[in-house]
Amino acid sequence: MRPSFLFPVALLVAGCVPQTAKPSHADLQTAPAAQAQAEEAAIAAALSGIANPKSDYKLSPADLLEVTVYREEELGRTVRVSQNGEISLPLVGTLKVGGTSLQDAQARVAEKFAEYLVNPQVTVFIKEYGNKKIYVLGEVAKPGSLDLPPESKLTVLEAISMSGGFSAVAAKDRTRVIRAGEGGKSQSWTVEVSAITTGGRKDKDMTLEPNDVVFVPQSFF
């Protein structure tokens, strides 16, 4: 019988096969923490963008403006931009500001008051945005902003549906709603989606408010 050399060769080949490294216990503990940090960073960035809208914002119908004239308190008004983009002020009457930047609107108002006053110092401030939005971010098909329908309500699941639904790796039951508050503080709620969809708990499907952020995190597994 010829001696067999297959066994040593088999051992040699087996030793050369690359082995897939298994995650260590430390890695398994670190992953959720890193994911949580990424989620908080994404939420913070979204809230920052909402609190600090772009400087090139154009005034729109239903925006609420506060107009003040230095040392002429009786001329100050809080006015809402009409559907045709106009506001009405004492002394100067009606003027169009829709579609202009805040700076241009302020200059236009000052120019009109200058027809009656000497060097009027006018300030125009956006007290409330008429074009109300909510934001759906994270693991949905089409993350981004949605217009909040006027005079109607929108729930968390409706907003997610309008954003194309959950992605394949969404952690549905860790869906969060973040609402910015005064002084930079915010409130956060966790929405247990399965309790709504399979448990019949429609009361848990929160009604959203302007500038709410719906964040769907990624599943760890």
Rank of each mutant, 00 (worst) to 15 (best):
A180N: 10
S145V: 12
G15H: 00
D27Y: 09
I126N: 03
F113P: 04
P150K: 09
V136P: 03
D104P: 00
V122L: 09
S24K: 02
A62W: 08
P120T: 01
S163I: 02
E151Q: 13
A51Q: 12
K172C: 05
D147E: 14
L75E: 01
S161Y: 11
V9T: 10
M1C: 11
L137M: 13
V136F: 10
L28K: 10
W189K: 11
V124Q: 04
L91C: 03
S60P: 02
A34K: 12
G165R: 08
S152E: 14
A45C: 08
V97R: 01
L12N: 02
S161Q: 12
D27G: 00
A14K: 01
T30L: 14
E158S: 10
D104C: 00
Q83A: 13
D173M: 06
E74F: 08
Q106E: 15
T198F: 13
L102G: 04
K54V: 13
T197F: 06
F220S: 09
E158L: 08
V92W: 02
I178C: 06
S24A: 07
R174V: 02
A10Q: 06
E115C: 00
F166E: 01
S4K: 01
A62M: 11
P210I: 01
V9K: 02
E39D: 15
L11I: 15
A26E: 13
V81Q: 03
I87M: 08
P210H: 03
Q37R: 13
T207N: 11
K142T: 15
S82M: 06
